[in-house]
Structure formats: structure tokens, C-alpha cells
Design a protein around this nucleic acid. Sequence first.
DNA 1: GTCCAGTTGCGACTGAGTCTCAGTATCTTG
DNA 2: CAAGATACTGAGACTCAGTCGCAACTGGAC
Lengths: 145, 145
Amino acid sequence: MVNARDVIGALEHGGYRLTAPRRALASLVAGREGHFTADDLLDAARRRHLGLGRATIFRALDALAELGIVERIDLPSGEHAFVACEAAHHHHVVCSSCGRATWASDHGLERVAAEIGRETGYRIDTHRLELFGLCAECLAAKAST
Amino acid sequence: MVNARDVIGALEHGGYRLTAPRRALASLVAGREGHFTADDLLDAARRRHLGLGRATIFRALDALAELGIVERIDLPSGEHAFVACEAAHHHHVVCSSCGRATWASDHGLERVAAEIGRETGYRIDTHRLELFGLCAECLAAKAST
DNA sequence: GTCCAGTTGCGACTGAGTCTCAGTATCTTG
DNA sequence: CAAGATACTGAGACTCAGTCGCAACTGGAC
């Protein structure tokens, strides 16, 4: 989770203009616990009568992804979604029940990647690890039924 | 890489009917080194005048994914692609230059996943690791220029 | 206040993937 | 081997995410 001020600050710092639509989007993105699709934001914007166009949302999301405020993830269903996150390298853990996304630090994955590089002869440049499962709350909720 | 006979055998074993379009698709999928999109197959089918419909290809690909003969991967560009592979659990290493895909065994990733589960409180059910880089050949080709 | 590049919203467009439906082919059973 | 049940197929219409082009607008530097 991230707050709107940080998003706006990052945009400003990244050389982007601070426009009304971007401020609006910052507040929509900020505070989201889970992953969201571009369409989720579009709906939310419509519901709040912010008057944001589809293209604007996609463009702003691109900018945020560029800045590392937001990251694209691919759900197991094949959908494209985003999560708001801090810029440092990390991995996403997504709850398949409630959609909440958490991020986790590296835990030796670099070493695994390096080893796979050695095994296959590839020079590994980037990697993506996405984990799916149940978050503690959903786990508890499920256990208590 | 996988051969057509295996693909056909798996379909038969999985309770699918062995139809001409599926045989044709098996031979298209078999022998591919790299990843391919549904559209690649559609093109290839058209070029060989196999007369396969778009829907048929998607359906057959779903069936193959179900059987684990083929696996969906998400390219960094956001495209959806497939790779033919063996069914055992493994990870994909994709060459960002020539598109070739190789698979690598686990190398302790299970442990990393378990540790991340512990850190975040999630019960991790599945994970996806995708690695991108340059394969040995592209690396050599690049070095010799 | 003025100006201009960066930005916006609109609507048309594209391309991947799905759905429907009538016709066809496969496998099973006798 | 014939016949029937039904899984499968191709065509094309459709949907939906994401992009593009463009005229109008606006933030912020001066």
C-alpha cells in the first residue's frame, strides 16, 4: 500500500506534469491493498464522476509503471493487473481469494537465478516470480467455517 | 522440444478425440524450440493450407495446456505465448533475442517459496518463475560481432 | 499575463480471444 | 460393418482490452 502524496511526489520528481487527472488517479491507486486492472480504475473513476478517459488511465498507468510506483503482474487467469508498490526489487504474493497483494524480499532467488543461468548457459537479465496462494486472513476465515 | 507422437499420445490418453485438426496442430507444436503465440500457429497453419479455424487452435491449445504438454507464459511485453514442454514442474528461461525457450529444474526455488510464505503469512499454492536473458548462441553471436 | 509543450478526452481502430451454431467426424456399441 | 450419440469443427459475429490520432486544453516557466 502506498499513499497518494508519494505517488504525486514521484510523478513530479520524474518530470511529469502534475495535472488534475493524474492527481485523481494517484488517489485511486493509493490505498489499494490488492491488485487492480485498468478497468477497475476506469470504473472507480466513473463512479466518482472524475471524468477520466480510458486512454488517460492507460497512459498514466504506463507512467507509474515507468516510475516503479506500480507494477504489472499477470494473474494465473491470463489477465493483466497492476499492484501499487515500492520501487525496490521484490516479488509479489497474490491472494487468490481476496486479491490482496503483498510483496516479499528476495530470499535467495538471485542465487537460484544464477544457478539456472549456469545450468542452461543463458545470461539471465531479468526474472519474474509471482506467487499465488491464500493470505493469512482468508486462511483463517476458511479454517473457521 | 517435444515430438508429435507424444502430443497425440497425451491427447488420446487424456480422453480427447483424435481428430485431423488436432493431429495437424500436434505437428505444428512439436519441434518448436521457442515460444509461440496462438497467432504464430494460425499463420503456420494457413501457410501449410491446413484449414484450421482460429477457434479450433485456441481450443486445442487449451486442451494441451490442460494436459501440461504446453504451458502459457507471459512475455515481458505483456504478450501471451506458449511453450511446448514436459509435464514435470519446472521453470522457463526465454531468450529475449531469438525467442528460444529452455526449461530448468527447480534449484531450491521451493525453499525460497516456502520462506516467502513464512515471511508473509500466506499459504503459497502455486508460483511462476520466468527468466529472460540471452541464450548461449545469441551470446556468442553478439560477442563475435 | 502569455505562450507552448505536455497532456487530455473522444471516438475510431486494432487484435486477441470467445461464443454460437449448423454441419461433420470420431468412437462405441451391437 | 452400420448406426447413433456426441465431441469436435470452421466461419463469422462479437466482446473487450489496449492504442492511436487529433483538436482542444492547461500547467508552469518566463
